[in-house]
Design a protein around this nucleic acid. Structure first.
Lengths: 262, 262
DNA sequence: CGGGCCCTTGATTCACGTCAATCTCTGTGG
DNA sequence: CCACAGAGATTGACGTGAATCAAGGGCCCG
C-alpha cells in the first residue's frame, strides 16, 4: 500500500473516478476538499468556492511505479502536487553518475523549470497519483489566488532550507551520520503524517526506494549504504524486517548518531 | 575594491550619506533607482513612485570584512539585499565541521528563517553593503507590491535550482570537477556582471574568499583545494597572480573539466 | 526448479584526508 | 632597512575509509 493513502480512501475516490475530469467541475468542491493531499499542498489555504475554482484547472493522474513523469530539459508544461506515492527528483551527469535531490510525497510540489525546461528528472518510485496543473493555468491562478501565492512561497522557503540541510549532509557528514539522518527524516515524516505521539522512541515504517536510490540521495555507493545499515543493525539501533521495512528501536540514539542539530 | 561597486560610485553615495536614512524619503526615488544592486534585486521590477515607496522601508548598512550579519538560530528580524561585497552563508556542526551553502553578492537576497529563527550564519567576506528591510515591513510590502512578490518567487526558484546543482556537485563530483565548476561559476558571473563578450575564452578575476571558504563550500579540505589549484595551474588551464587572483586561460576546456551540463 | 534482480558481504585499492614541514606575503617594531 | 611574527597557502609523506571489484545469498516470478 502506497505511503500517504489513508485507509478510508480507495484509489478510485482519489482519481475522482475518471482520469481526465474537466467535466467534474460541479463536484469539485467536495472533490478537492476531500483530497488526501489537500492539507499539505499548494491549495491548503483555500476552501469552499475558491478551492473549487482553483481546482478546476487541475487533473488527477496516475503514474505507475518506475514510470517517468518528466525528464530534465523536457519542455516544462505542467506543475504537480503529489497526492499519494513517492516521486524522486534527480540529476545526471553524462557518465551516469546521479544525484537525487529529493523524494517528494503527499502534498509536495514538483515541476520547477528555468527557461521553460525542467531542471530534473521526476520518476515514480511506487505507484503515484499527482494533481497536475498546466503551468500557464497555475501562473494565472497565482494572480487570482493570493493565498496560493503565499503558500507557494512558504513551500519554496521550506525547500531551500531542506536543500541547505542536505548540502551540509553531503559535504560534511560521515556515512553513518548520513544514513542516521535519512532514517530520522523518514521516521519523523512518518510520525507526523500518521499522527503518532511525538515522544515515542520506536517507529516502524516502509522505505519505498531502493538501496541505489538511497545511495544516490546521500552521495554514497550501494555497498556503503548496505554496510552502514548492517552496522546500525548490529548495534541494535534498527531492525530490518525486509530490506525495505525498518524499525527504529531508539530514536533518541539515532538523533545522536545523526548529528542532526534539530 | 569590492566586487560589484562600479567605478562611478563611491561608498558614500551607496550609503546615501547616512547610516539610517528614514529622513531621506523625499530623495528616495533617485536614491533607490541609482542603487547599483537595483537591477538584480528584489526591487528590480519597481520604478518611480512604487520603488520609492518600497524603498522607504529599507536602510543601507555597511558591514566590515569578517563581521557577522546574523547567526543561525538568532531571532530573525530583517531581510537583506546585498548591494556590494560578498556574504557567505554557512551551517555548522557542533564539532566545527562547516558547510557553506552559498556566496551572496550584488542583488542576491539573504535572511531566510523558519519559526522566526535564521537558518544559517551570514558573514561578510569583504567589506559589504546591504539593504536591510524589517521582516514585518517586507511582508507588508509583499502584500502591496505584487511585482516584488513575483520577483521574490523568481529568485527563490533560481535559488532552489542552484542548490540542486550544488548537491550534484557535492554528492557526485571529483575534486577537479568541483574546483573547475566553482571557477567557472565565478568566471561566468564576472563576465555577466562586467558586461564582457559572451564568447571570450579568457577571464581574469578576484576571489574574495579564502581557501578554507572554498573547501567548506565544495566539501573538501584546504589541502585538496590547494593541490587541485596547482594541478590546474600545471596543466596550463589557469594562472594565479596571487592566491586570490585567478586567470582562466581556457574557459572551454574548463567547462569540459567541470562536467557542468550547461 | 531456474533465472534475474537486489541486497549483502568480503577482499583489495586508491583517492582524499590527516599530519607535518615549508613557503609566501604582510604588517610591525627595532 | 631589516628582522621577526603570524596567518594563510602550498607541498610532501603517510594512513585510512569509502570506492571498487568480485562473490555469494535471498526472494520473486515464470
Amino acid at each position: 500500500m502506497a505511503i500517504g493513502i489513508t485507509s478510508e480512501e480507495t484509489l478510485d475516490s482519489q482519481l475522482g473516478g475518471c482520469r481526465f475530469n474537466q467535466d467534474a467541475n460541479k463536484s469539485k468542491v467536495s472533490y478537492c476538499a476531500s483530497c488526501s493531499a489537500h492539507k499539505y499542498a499548494l491549495c491548503s489555504k483555500l476552501d469552499g468556492e475558491a478551492l473549487a475554482a482553483f481546482g478546476a484547472n487541475s487533473t488527477h493522474r496516475k503514474i505507475d511505479a518506475g514510470q517517468t513523469l518528466y525528464s530534465e530539459y523536457d519542455e516544462a508544461t505542467s506543475f504537480y502536487t503529489v497526492v499519494s506515492g513517492e516521486v524522486r527528483l534527480s540529476r545526471m551527469l553524462d557518465d551516469g553518475r546521479r544525484q537525487i535531490t529529493g523524494f517528494k510525497s503527499q502534498g509536495d510540489f514538483l515541476g520547477l523549470s528555468t527557461k521553460g525546461l525542467y531542471t530534473a528528472d521526476a520518476e515514480a518510485i511506487d505507484d503515484v497519483v499527482v494533481c497536475q496543473f498546466s503551468l500557464a493555468g497555475l501562473n494565472k491562478s497565482l494572480e487570482n489566488f493570493s493565498a496560493v501565492q503565499v503558500r507557494l512561497m512558504e513551500m519554496m522557503q521550506a525547500e531551500v532550507i531542506d536543500l541547505q540541510d542536505q548540502m551540509l549532509l553531503l559535504g560534511r557528514k560521515t556515512p553513518i551520520e548520513k544514513i542516521a539522518n535519512f532514517l530520522l527524516d523518514r521516521a519523523e515524516r512518518h510520525i507526523e503524517r500518521n499522527g503518532l505521539a511525538e515522544d515515542v522512541n520506536e517507529v516502524e515504517f516502509h522505505l519505498p526506494m531502493s538501496r541505489v536510490d538511497i545511495a544516490d540521495f546521500l552521495g554514497l555507493t550501494i555497498e556503503t549504504v548496505s554496510r552502514t545499515f548492517t552496522k546500525l543493525k548490529k548495534s541494535g539501533l534498527i531492525e530490518l524486517k525486509t530490506s525495505q521495512d525498518v524499525k527504529i528501536c531508539d530514536l533518541d540514539e539515532l538523533r545522536v548518531q545523526a548529528n542532526s542539530d534539530e
